[in-house]
């Protein structure tokens, strides 16, 4: 149990995908103008991350890793080079299916974060999560926890940044710094704060 919690905290805080690995930065900067938008997008990323990482773990484990095709008489087949394209395909297909299902059964939910779903496909945090999972060779259970943790951490980070940016809207900053420049400096400071989580030991 404590190992699970450890992995969750590690994925969410100390190894925050946005602030420690800079993943999903484009969306992170683009969608963090208001807390409302940031929250919707954060929930979308969390949902997709929680499902797509374990899904990719299964695909990697049963289809792509060396020796996965031994039962077909192909023990030497190593398809791991196809990992990238397979993961991207899985994520894109999954997002598309999710969008259709939401549209059909939960129209309210679909209206709330439907616009963000297609954007998530090209979000590097999602692909990055799956690639980290493959690189660290997580098991199915671990990859589920890792997906949930990293998605949660990303959502928290974007909501934090959006809250700060809302308050900075009326600040009197130098002309050239307004907009992106200031946002980068703020993200730097938030990231500095997250560095403080490094070295936390859970009891």
């Amino acid at each position: 149990m404590s190992e699970t919690l450890d992995l969750f905290v590690q994925a969410a805080l100390t190894e925050n995908l946005a602030l420690a690995f800079f993943l999903g930065m484009c969306m992170f900067l683009a969608v963090s103008k208001t807390v409302e938008m940031a929250f919707g997008f954060g929930v979308a990323v969390f949902t997709i991350q929680t499902i797509s990482v374990p899904l990719n773990q299964l695909i990697g484990h049963f289809l792509l890793q060396p020796g996965a095709w031994a039962w077909l008489g192909l023990p030497d087949a190593d398809l791991s080079f196809l990992r990238l394209i397979a993961f991207v395909g899985v994520i894109a297909a999954f997002v598309q299916i999710l969008e259709m299902v939401l549209d059909r059964y939960f129209p309210a939910l679909s209206a709330a974060f439907g616009v963000y779903l297609p954007l998530v496909t090209v979000n590097c945090a999602i692909l990055g999560g799956s690639l980290f999972m493959a690189e660290r060779q997580y098991s199915f259970a671990e990859s589920f926890v890792y997906g949930a943790g990293s998605g949660f951490g990303w959502a928290v980070a974007i909501c934090l940044l959006a809250a700060i940016r809302e308050r900075l809207e009326y600040s009197d900053s130098p002309e050239g710094l307004r907009g992106m420049g200031l946002t980068f400096l703020v993200v730097g400071i938030v990231s500095l704060a997250f560095l403080g989580f490094v070295g936390i030991e859970l009891p």
């Binding site: 800079f22 710094l177 420049g181 730097g188 990231s191 560095l195």
Partner: peptide
């Protein structure tokens, strides 16, 4: 550490 990259790019954009 990661934060320095944010600071440098922020200043560069500025």
């Amino acid at each position: 550490r990661p934060p320095s990259a944010f600071f440098l790019i922020g200043v560069l954009i500025w």
